[in-house]
Computed example of a mutant assay.
Amino acid sequence: MMPGKISKKLEQIDALYRNYNLLYQRLASHLGLSYNKMLILYTLNQKQICTQKFISDSLFLPKQTVNSVVQSLLKDDLVYLEVSKENKKIKNIYLTEKGKELAKETVDLLLESEISAAENLSDQEIDLLVKLTEKHLYFIEKEINKNFKMNT
């Protein structure tokens, strides 16, 4: 493929990723949540045990941002903290009953929407989407490591 064509295709891919983000930002706003609060609520609802570090690492959010959102969730009685049995320095974050109810009304419906949307694709299309995304990520990482002399 010619470099100009590749650039156009990359612009299309970037636009698709931006549109995904914009859709989720619009949804968060519609739900009366900040984007980060919705993402963190989604994560807390999916995992049995979460720490601020786990959330920060998995969502690529600064620790300060995660801490601010968690403090807001605590203030609104949507989560509670409990000292980890394995490491007394770590506090696990759990949804309260009120938090679980909010999750049910928001991020559970989001997950249902994501599943329903995926069900419109065939198994082969989903497999291909995953395979091509993984392949694209592999080659981007390889080129970045090479061009910026980064170690993996």
Rank of each mutant, 00 (worst) to 15 (best):
L31E: 05
G32V: 15
G32Q: 14
L33K: 10
S34Y: 11
S34W: 05
S34T: 09
Y35C: 06
Y35V: 01
N36P: 07
N36Q: 15
N36F: 10
K37R: 05
M38L: 14
L39T: 01
L39R: 03
L41Y: 00
L41T: 04
L41S: 05
L41P: 00
Y42R: 08
Y42A: 09
T43E: 11
L44K: 02
L44W: 00
N45L: 08
K47H: 08
K47N: 05
Q48L: 15
I49V: 05
I49Q: 09
C50I: 12
C50G: 09
T51M: 12
Q52G: 13
Q52F: 03
Q52V: 09
K53T: 13
K53L: 11
I55T: 01
I55E: 00
S56N: 11
S56H: 13
S56C: 12
S56D: 08
D57P: 06
S58K: 10
S58T: 03
S58I: 02
F60H: 07
L61V: 10
P62Y: 02
P62H: 07
K63N: 14
K63E: 13
K63P: 08
Q64T: 14
T65E: 05
V66M: 03
V66E: 04
V66A: 01
N67H: 12
N67S: 11
S68W: 04
S68R: 07
V70P: 02
Q71L: 10
L73Q: 00
K75Y: 10
D76H: 06
D76N: 10
D77F: 09
D77T: 13
L78G: 00
L78E: 00
L78A: 03
V79N: 00
Y80Q: 06
L81W: 02
E82R: 09
E82N: 04
V83L: 11
V83G: 11
V83Q: 14
S84A: 10
S84V: 01
K85L: 14
E86I: 13
E86V: 12
K88A: 12
K89P: 05
K89W: 03
K89D: 08
N92W: 05
N92S: 01
N92H: 02
I93H: 01
Y94R: 11
Y94I: 06
Y94P: 09
Y94A: 10
E97I: 08
E97W: 08
G99K: 00
E101L: 04
E101Q: 13
L102Y: 02
L102H: 04
A103I: 05
K104R: 15
E105F: 05
E105Y: 03
E105D: 13
E105R: 10
E105C: 09
T106E: 03
V107P: 00
V107A: 04
D108N: 15
D108M: 13
L109S: 06
L111C: 02
S113E: 14
S113H: 09
S113F: 15
S113R: 13
I115A: 04
I115N: 08
I115G: 05
I115L: 09
S116F: 07
A117R: 05
A117S: 15
A118E: 08
A118P: 06
A118F: 10
E119I: 14
L121A: 15
L121Q: 12
Q124P: 07
Q124L: 12
Q124G: 14
E125I: 03
E125R: 12
E125L: 10
I126A: 11
D127C: 15
D127Q: 11
